[in-house]
Simulated assay, not measured.
Amino acid sequence: MAYGYALAVVAGISLGVLVGQSTWALRGLDPVFQVLRTVPPLAWLPISLAGFQDSAPSAIFVIFITAIWPIIINTSVGVRNIPEDYRNVARVLRLNGYEYFTRIMLPAAAPYIFSGLRIGVGLSWLAIVAAEMLIGGVGIGFFIWDAWNASMISDIVLALIYVASSASSSTAWSPMWVTA
């Protein structure tokens, strides 16, 4: 899960900043993002299995594609909502691009970015459990499916408690999810 989520963080924040800063990128990419984010995560699994021909990279891709949308959307909204006063201060101080990014943009958009990261990690937990059930092999999803097939309901309950306790600090149903 860490690999897929880390890739989603890097790509999501980068694309979110691009879409938030550029009107052209917003007009060109946002409609694509809005369409692709509606595709259920597990619908990507057969495509990724066909493309990667292996279950491990397929699971990483499913986590990536699940987590990236809230990160992109929240980051772009955060960047677009930077107050004009902050932009004016950057112009008065003649900040270069890097200084503007580190001193103005990131701090101002941080609440939105972290909200997207929080939602993304919660959705990643949902995707990995389901993907592991379908792919098989290892992981908590496979453990739950294997316990079901062995009629070991107590093991399923234990696994659900584990998943709930692991993901409780990063709930996917946050009211902070901004849909632009």
Rank of each mutant, 00 (worst) to 15 (best):
N96F: 04
N96K: 05
N96H: 05
N96I: 04
G97A: 14
Y98G: 05
Y98M: 07
E99I: 12
Y100N: 08
Y100S: 06
Y100E: 08
F101A: 13
F101Q: 05
T102R: 09
T102V: 06
R103G: 10
R103C: 09
R103Q: 15
I104H: 08
I104F: 05
I104V: 15
M105T: 07
M105S: 03
M105Q: 06
M105G: 03
L106R: 03
L106P: 00
P107I: 05
P107V: 04
P107Q: 01
P107H: 05
A108F: 00
A109D: 04
A109H: 00
A110W: 10
A110G: 07
A110P: 04
P111I: 00
P111E: 04
Y112H: 15
Y112S: 15
I113S: 00
I113N: 02
I113H: 01
S115D: 07
S115H: 02
S115A: 12
S115P: 02
S115N: 08
S115R: 00
G116L: 02
G116H: 01
L117A: 13
L117T: 05
L117S: 11
R118N: 12
R118H: 09
I119P: 00
I119Y: 02
I119F: 05
G120C: 12
G120S: 12
G120T: 06
V121Y: 10
V121N: 08
G122H: 08
G122P: 10
G122W: 06
L123W: 04
L123H: 05
S124P: 11
W125H: 14
L126D: 14
L126C: 13
L126S: 15
L126H: 14
A127T: 08
A127Y: 04
I128Y: 11
I128Q: 13
I128R: 10
I128L: 15
V129P: 03
V129N: 06
V129M: 06
A130H: 09
A130R: 06
A131S: 15
A131D: 05
E132P: 05
E132Q: 14
E132V: 08
E132A: 11
E132G: 07
E132N: 07
